[in-house]
């Protein structure tokens, strides 16, 4: 589905990603793990056009998308969340989720200022769609709240809802359960599995090993920008390189 080839990215001479290649098979959850600073977020940013990779390619079913600007990415059916919440704090929950439908929204200038009935109806349909998504994430009661006033857990769910509302084929999740309590994490974990069962291709970045082992179909391990291991959860669990990469830094990552 999505294949990443020889992806390389340097920040001022320091490699954050060095020649990383792997595939995300369709309808599977591929999980990217690695110690802090390994380059996981950088990889997602390169794939989604937020950063421009120095070398290498990203292909979606054979089409090169590695150099597309970030605003084109959602048109390929790709959606993502950010590690440090990237919501619009002064907009309401509903508006935040609606913004996830930009790809379908009417953004023509003339239609926007005259808002003919067709445009209004279309807007109403999008609004209903967004409300449905809020229901699914138990946020309907908060629809009119400005996101800046919500708890952290609620915000994380708003971001998930925003990513999913457009019905993407591919989803990148950057640490979706970081900072959540056990109950909330479990709910997100279930949601992720449910999405996979619906046929989504998911690239997950996560530090929570219980969750990772429970949901992943395949795991890719990065360390200091290098891909050091790749395999099923069972293989990764016993891979000495991985254990070393983590143990060597256990004090920092724990």
């Amino acid at each position: 589905m999505l294949s990443i080839d020889h992806l390389t990215k340097h920040f001022g001479g320091l490699p954050a990603l060095n020649d990383v290649s792997f595939d995300c098979p369709a309808g599977r959850i591929t999980t990217l793990i690695g110690p802090n600073g390994a380059g996981k977020s950088t990889l997602i940013n390169c794939v989604t056009g937020v950063l421009v990779p120095d070398k290498g390619s990203v292909r979606l079913e054979g089409t090169e998308i590695g150099r597309e600007p970030s605003y084109r990415i959602p048109y390929h059916g790709i959606a993502r969340t950010f590690q440090n919440l990237a919501l619009f704090p002064r907009l309401s929950v509903l508006e935040n989720v609606l913004s996830g439908l930009t790809v379908e929204a009417e953004t023509g200038f003339l239609k926007s200022i005259f808002r003919p009935p067709a445009t209004r109806n279309h807007e109403r349909r999008l609004r209903l769609k967004a409300m449905e998504m809020l229901d699914r994430f138990v946020l309907a009661g908060k629809a009119d709240w400005p996101v800046g006033e919500l708890s952290y857990g609620d915000r994380k769910r708003v971001e998930m809802a925003r990513a999913l509302v457009s019905g993407p084929r591919i989803l990148f999740l950057d640490e979706p359960v970081a900072g959540l309590n056990a109950e909330e994490s479990a709910a997100i974990g279930e949601e992720i599995c449910r999405l996979r069962n619906l046929g989504l291709t998911i690239l997950l970045v996560e530090h929570d090993m219980d969750l990772v082992m429970a949901v992943s179909d395949g795991i890719v391990v990065l360390d200091s920008g290098e891909l050091i291991a790749q395999g099923s959860p069972e293989e990764i669990r016993h891979n000495p390189k991985v254990i070393e990469a983590y143990l060597g830094r256990m004090s920092v990552t724990a």
Partner: peptide
């Protein structure tokens, strides 16, 4: 009208977080 449209929402979004707005498809 403009501020209630999709375009208006896009403007408000990019004012608050350009990276996120762009990642959602706002040019």
């Amino acid at each position: 009208n403009l501020v209630r449209s999709g375009l208006g929402l896009g403007l408000a979004a990019l004012a608050q977080n350009e990276t996120a707005a762009s990642a959602l498809g706002i040019k």
